[in-house]
Design a binder for these strands. Structure first.
Length: 483
RNA sequence: GCUCAUGUAGUGUAGCGGCCAAUCAUUCGGCCCUUUCGAGGCCGACACCCGGGUUCGAUUCCCGGCAUGAGCACCA
């Protein structure tokens, strides 16, 4: 028996190198705000691999810069990850792990791989550019250890001294030459207050934690390529086994506000409604608009982990989301900027339409239009009607232009002649408002049946998919997702 | 300036020396179906950065150029 396999080449993620049994991977967000669409890539990719191979996914909060911490971010990020379906096995917080960083720094200084630099920061940088060691670099380990003790116990002012890891002062790549491991910050930390004054720089804390937590594979953005090289010095000095490193390309996300500090300021100024303001690209904003986490996942999986810089495509994401919601979203008529028409002739009218054209079993919207037979058309359809002279009110009847409009039979076949079918609502419609991603809102009328719906995603025919934020007898408030 | 990375259609992706006059998705156009400009079906449009080399043969390997991006922070 020959069963021809369907040539269904779904492009999944490539296998990782060096997998022996289970994997340990991580994501390492800085808690400066909730996650945005750009952050979701690293979460999804790591999650996909941990699910493929089994093992652990650690979420490690990198809160080693007390200036940039938003105290609520720890919880918001956790919520965002849960919604995304990224399964975190363990959470860790770097501000609770300072002793480890101090310990490793001390060992590195003892071995002569690190030094305490008291030079002026600009001066030190200039010397590095010229491949020249600063005077502190060649001090004895004993002297450096004395300085290190003084450093930890508060004997220096902020900026007066730093702990530095030696690499190669004459390394051809200036980005790799000696890097700072610890600095002094007396600004209080939202979690640890003033308990610590010596703060690790990411290259120290990341290397120490990745090793201690047993990372087997590290996936992160290409912008960290040089950081990886720097961290490898620590691995080599300490004799640690290195994880497999992967660097995916940078993502350019157009037409959206992502910068955390900017969003934060706009919220403070009262311009944005919050972290979920639909004008932003935060995960919570996308969620509010009705973007499904599965769509975001599929998007990143299809993008892979190549180190090529890419252009983010909202079109592609929306197409994937449409795929997911199309089957479940019931259909309703919505009329923006309504224009009233009465219909003359034809007696009382009635009609009906399925909640979903592919699922008549879900039920029907039924219309009865009597009396003056008042209907409302959207402003743009009204204009089109006046020009075309004839139009079909979808699922009700045909009309020809006039004031009042004239009943023109109920023969569907006129659609084949090029007459357009348009959406309409009658007198018992309810007010509807659709919040658009650009911050504007479209006001109009929706058919009454929308109040009885259950799902939160619906399609306003010929308008787009919207998420229903609130149903009340006074009307519906919706958020626009996409066409 | 130095260093690193990358270069397949509008966008993203497959390809790992011949099966590629190049895959899939999206986008756009047309047709069919349809009482949505949705979904579905069919058809079509658009790409291997350039120049050398290796080879019987290169999108695939090597070198150079060009382009793009990133890093050279006491941010992450």
């Amino acid at each position: 028996m020959l069963i021809r396999e369907k040539k269904e080449k779904v492009h999944g993620l490539p296998d990782l190198d060096g997998v022996e049994g289970k994997v340990v991977m991580r994501i390492a967000p800085g808690p400066s705000g909730p996650l945005h669409i750009g952050h979701t890539r690293v979460g999804i990719l790591n999650d996909e691999y941990v699910k493929r191979y089994g093992g652990k996914l650690i979420c490690r909060f990198e809160d080693t810069n007390p200036d940039k911490i938003e105290p609520d971010a720890y919880d918001m990020i956790k919520e965002d990850l849960e919604w995304l379906g990224v399964d975190i096995s363990e959470y860790a917080v770097q501000s609770e792990r300072f002793e480890y960083y101090y310990d490793v720094t001390k060992k590195l200084i003892e071995m002569g791989h690190g030094y305490m630099c008291t030079c002026d920061a600009d001066e030190w940088r200039r010397m590095k550019e010229d491949m020249k060691p600063c005077p502190c670099r060649d001090l004895s380990a004993e002297e450096n250890l004395r300085r290190y003790e003084r450093f930890l116990s508060g004997g220096y002012a902020d900026g007066e001294a730093v702990a530095v890891i030696k690499t190669a002062i004459d390394h051809p790549n200036p980005a790799i030459r000696d890097f700072v491991a610890l600095r002094l910050v007396r600004h209080p930390h939202p979690r640890t207050g003033t308990k610590y004054i010596a703060y690790p720089m990411m290259n120290l804390s990341v290397a120490v934690d990745d090793h201690m937590m047993g990372m087997t594979h590290v996936i992160r953005g290409k912008d960290h390529l040089n950081n990886t090289h720097r961290q490898e010095y620590i691995y080599d000095y300490m004799g640690w086994k290195k994880p497999e490193f992967y660097h995916y390309g940078l993502v350019n996300i157009p037409d959206t506000v992502l910068k955390t500090s900017l969003i934060k300021q706009s919220i403070k100024d009262g311009e944005y409604s919050g972290w979920d303001d639909v004008r932003t690209g935060t995960v919570r904003a996308l969620r509010k608009r009705g973007i499904r986490p599965e769509a975001i996942r599929r998007y990143w999986v299809e993008n892979g982990i190549k180190p090529i810089d890419i252009q983010f495509s909202w079109d592609n994401l929306f197409a994937m989301n449409r795929d997911l919601i199309d089957d479940t979203a019931d259909r309703y008529f919505f009329v923006a900027d309504p224009v009233r028409y009465d219909i003359e002739g034809g007696g009382d009218l009635e009609g009906r339409a399925p909640l979903h054209p592919d699922h008549p079993e879900r039920g029907w919207r039924c219309y009865q239009v009597g009396g003056h037979k008042t209907v409302f058309l959207s402003e743009t359809d009204s204009l089109m009607f006046s020009q075309a002279g004839r139009v079909r009110l979808k699922d009700l009847c045909n009309i020809s232009y006039g004031l009042p409009a004239q009943y023109d039979g109920n023969d569907v076949s006129i659609l084949r002649e090029g007459v357009r079918a348009i959406q309409w609502v009658c007198n018992d419609s309810v007010p509807a408002e659709v919040l658009m991603p650009d911050g504007t809102s479209v006001k109009g009328l929706a058919e009454k049946a929308v109040l009885d719906g259950k799902g939160d995603m619906v399609q306003f025919e010929r308008f787009g998919f919207v998420r229903i934020e609130r149903r009340s007898p006074e009307g519906v408030l919706c958020i626009f997702a996409h066409r």
